[in-house]
């Protein structure tokens, strides 16, 4: 038997896992630290949001659903703050971003 909750859950969780996969690929493919931070802070946030929204739909209006919503809110606040803290630390430590279109930078790296 197929009901609408299961279908929605499967759709959301599958979409979320796709975006988490994109985030992982980005960490491998991108050329420098600052662009890798883009991959973790955006694709991962979206993927985790979608998976947890799917689980909330599966759970319904219970205490555990509320706790899952709390996890969602926490991720939404904590992920960009963590990415910003790392990027700021890297800038203070003297790590310069790579500009791939600039020829001089390409030769250096």
């Amino acid at each position: 038997m197929i009901d609408i909750t299961s279908v929605l859950t499967i759709l959301f969780v599958a979409a979320g896992i796709f975006f988490l996969l994109v985030g992982s690929i980005g960490i491998i493919r991108l050329p420098d630290f600052y662009s890798r931070t883009h991959a973790t802070s955006k694709s991962d946030t979206l993927g985790m949001m979608l998976v947890i929204i799917g689980l909330i739909i599966y759970e319904g209006l219970t205490i555990n659903g509320g706790k899952l919503f709390l996890v969602l809110l926490f991720i939404l606040l904590a992920n960009p703050v963590g990415a910003h803290a790392l990027a700021r630390a890297a800038l203070n430590a003297g790590l310069k971003p790579i500009f791939p279109n600039n020829k001089k930078d390409k030769e250096e790296s």
Binding site: V22, S43, T45
Partner: peptide
């Protein structure tokens, strides 16, 4: 957030990696 996720995913999944930082 949804727009940004799709935007970044499009960049990452294209074979030529068209980034211009």
């Amino acid at each position: 957030i949804v727009i940004s996720g799709v935007h970044v995913a499009k960049i990452l999944l294209s074979p030529s990696l068209p980034i211009e930082t």
